[in-house]
Design a binder for these strands. Sequence first.
DNA 1: CTATATAATTAGGAAAGCCTAAACATGTCG
DNA 2: CGACATGTTTAGGCTTTCCTAATTATATAG
Lengths: 224, 224
Amino acid sequence: MTNERIEEYLETILYLTNKNKGPAKTNQIAEELKLSPPSVTEMIRKLFGSGYIKYTPYHGVTLTPKGCTEAMRIKRRHQLLETFLVDVLDLDPKFAHAEACEMEHSISETTLEKMCAYMGHPEICPDGNPIGHGECCPTEALNASYRDYIPLSELKEGEQGTIKIISLTREIKDRLSSIGLIPDQEIQVKRKLGQGTLSITAMGTEVAVGKNIASKIMVQSHGA
Amino acid sequence: MTNERIEEYLETILYLTNKNKGPAKTNQIAEELKLSPPSVTEMIRKLFGSGYIKYTPYHGVTLTPKGCTEAMRIKRRHQLLETFLVDVLDLDPKFAHAEACEMEHSISETTLEKMCAYMGHPEICPDGNPIGHGECCPTEALNASYRDYIPLSELKEGEQGTIKIISLTREIKDRLSSIGLIPDQEIQVKRKLGQGTLSITAMGTEVAVGKNIASKIMVQSHGA
DNA sequence: CTATATAATTAGGAAAGCCTAAACATGTCG
DNA sequence: CGACATGTTTAGGCTTTCCTAATTATATAG
């Protein structure tokens, strides 16, 4: 089982190789993790020795299939935790992200699965990114779907979309259906009333949607 | 802020001084934490240096007010987490205890409070112990109330009790009231149907209560 | 093609926690 | 009272992960 520090490095390397569309550099990793470059070089050697990364001195690092599988596993934990913290416990998204970073290393697979089940197996994160399933090396397609889903509160006036209530708890689903909104429903934004509060048409009827809930309903935009 | 290892030691010392009704011995701590005695001696010196414990070489350790406050804070986190894992996520109580041990060090105060609120500010743990509030050095009274509350599933045939649904989630409260059970209600066990399933009378009417839910309803027993 | 800026690595060392083996206290039993 | 079993501490060492300072490799601009 990988330990906490190794997990942190692998996660960062996954993030950077995706961002770079190429190897992660020593200095980048150091900056990301707020460490000195020599510390990173040292750990790189260790990760290489354990078969998690490919590594050419002076040229940077990419994940091996083994390392990528591990990194994706951690990313999934992070995303599920983040989703749970935001959707169930109603934490501030930014705070939830930081908290998930802390918790993702100590939570067990069992507990994570229970959380996942409790939320109804969400497929997207509060930040709009799809939640992985441990598959190896994220494909272009997966990356392309980034931000496919956005919170309802971010739709512009006049814009249309489809509701995707994939990641919400029973509680929020209930509140939603009580105001007449259901998954896969076509909606159009009428007016933005400020601070995320808006007035939309759904199935021909006009509905007001409050700030808190609007930021939690993920929609797929179809433009104006 | 205390670190993870210090928290673990303080928690153990609180547990042992309570159990001993006297100082915690080096070997006890070592055994509890599965460490060698010299490692414990070393950490004891550190804790003493930071003012968390009183320490006389060869005689053992007690908590100072500072140490006790800290230990109680950690104990509360542990208990709240354990309650959350059992009552909300439906984890096996034994597993939840172990998991809480891992998570209690990384979860933030903010998240913990959100969990607490989500559960409706529970006052007892799934194990029947009262959840502390960070008060210093547990009193006799606090210890005396251990196991005042037991799961409904443990009431014997013919025994009476009062329902204390202090630590349950909305979900379970709903399931409860749907079968006609409410907090502070007087009940009497009619028959035990095996495996925790039982038939009880509440407000004059007979109700069947299933295994899962019976083990989560805490009651104060009044005897047969 | 060389001088130089930038990036990465080596060298050497520190702190935290852990270990084993050996020395040392303490309380008890004859 | 003294010897011994038990429990505790000292001595010395190991691993992990981090650091700074100095060195070396690479890429680029003139």
